[in-house]
């Protein structure tokens, strides 16, 4: 569904994910990690009902569990010794550290699931064009070649089948030789075609002037409002992070949670920032359900 956060200006979406990912990597405070996890999961649910999340979550959870379990086995730093395994001390701190970093890795991976839903290739290219026009162009062309190549592959295989070369009951070696032949036909054909495309492009004036983008995303009033919310909360997040407001010490001794007014302020700003897309998507959802026709 394309509504709410996904229709925001691509630069704002990108900035959101950049800050979110940096926060996932840099903040080790357990409250922050847990709230980020909740935020990202809800964001995923509001984007596509959790379909993309369901596909990847198993593998990601396995990675996180491996990290969580293996950290105390490798590291015996920390002051609180809980017991010994193979004559190596297992400390509370190394378990906590493993848990926090497993959580942070999980956050990063899940944030990328949402990223893939929001930043579509089209938006990625829009973002890349002003910085690196030729790179954006080459990625566009490469993307366009992918479906073309699969279509051609089917065509070649049809011809081979009609000619009787791709017999399904033929032996394996024969099939493999034919498979190679398919691939080589595809390459020779496509490379020649690419060069003809290039000549045609040059004939139409490629490289004469600056290229323009076919999609444009104007900043409207909603974008500007969200922009200012992101700037204010984002500045708080960065400045607070630099001063170490939300620093959480694991080594040498696990720190207990201390709540200072600065931490509260920082946490609230962070929460507002993380929940911007969820609020936007939620608003759309509410509108959809409660709207009444005035006809």
């Amino acid at each position: 569904m394309i509504h709410g956060f996904s229709t925001l200006h691509p630069r704002l979406c990108f900035a959101y994910f950049a800050v979110l990912l940096l926060a996932c990597m840099m903040y080790t405070h357990p409250v922050y990690s847990v709230l980020t996890l909740i935020g990202i999961v809800v964001l995923n649910l509001s984007l596509d009902g959790g379909r993309a999340l369901k596909k990847g979550i198993k593998g990601y959870l396995i990675i996180a569990i491996i990290i969580f379990v293996s950290n105390p086995l490798f590291s015996s730093r920390g002051a609180t010794i809980l017991g010994y395994v193979f004559d190596r001390p297992i400390t509370l701190e190394s378990i906590a550290y493993g848990a926090l970093f497993a959580l942070s890795l999980l956050n990063i991976l899940l944030a990328f699931v949402a990223y893939n839903l929001v930043i579509t290739p089209e938006k990625l290219l829009y973002l890349l064009t002003p910085i690196a026009p030729r790179t954006a162009f080459i990625i566009t062309v490469t993307l366009r070649f992918v479906p073309l190549l699969t279509r051609r592959l089917k065509q070649i295989m049809t011809v081979q089948r009609v000619l009787g070369y791709l017999h399904p009951r033929a032996n394996k070696r024969h099939l493999m030789r034919e498979g190679m032949e398919t691939l080589h036909t595809l390459i020779s054909w496509s490379l020649e075609e690419a060069l003809q495309t290039a000549s045609s492009m040059r004939a139409r004036g490629y490289g004469i002037g600056k290229r323009t983008s076919s999609v444009s995303y104007p900043m409207d009033r909603r974008d500007i409002l969200v922009f200012w919310i992101m700037v204010v909360t984002g500045a708080n997040i960065v400045i607070g992070g630099l001063f170490g407001v939300n620093r959480f010490q694991v080594y040498p001794r696990l720190q207990s949670l201390e709540w200072s007014p600065q931490l509260w302020l920082h946490l609230i700003c962070y929460l507002i920032f993380v929940f911007i897309p969820i609020v936007m998507n939620g608003k759309e959802e509410l509108l959809w359900r409660t709207i009444k026709s005035k006809m």
Partner: peptide, 26 residues
């Protein structure tokens, strides 16, 4: 990438790189 952006390249050369990249990706 800086070098790629700044070099003068023919359209054919760019398209060839794109096609090879597409084959590798596919």
């Amino acid at each position: 990438y800086i070098r790629f952006e700044r070099k003068t390249m023919k359209a054919e050369e760019i398209l060839l790189i794109a096609m090879l990249g597409a084959i590798a990706a596919v």
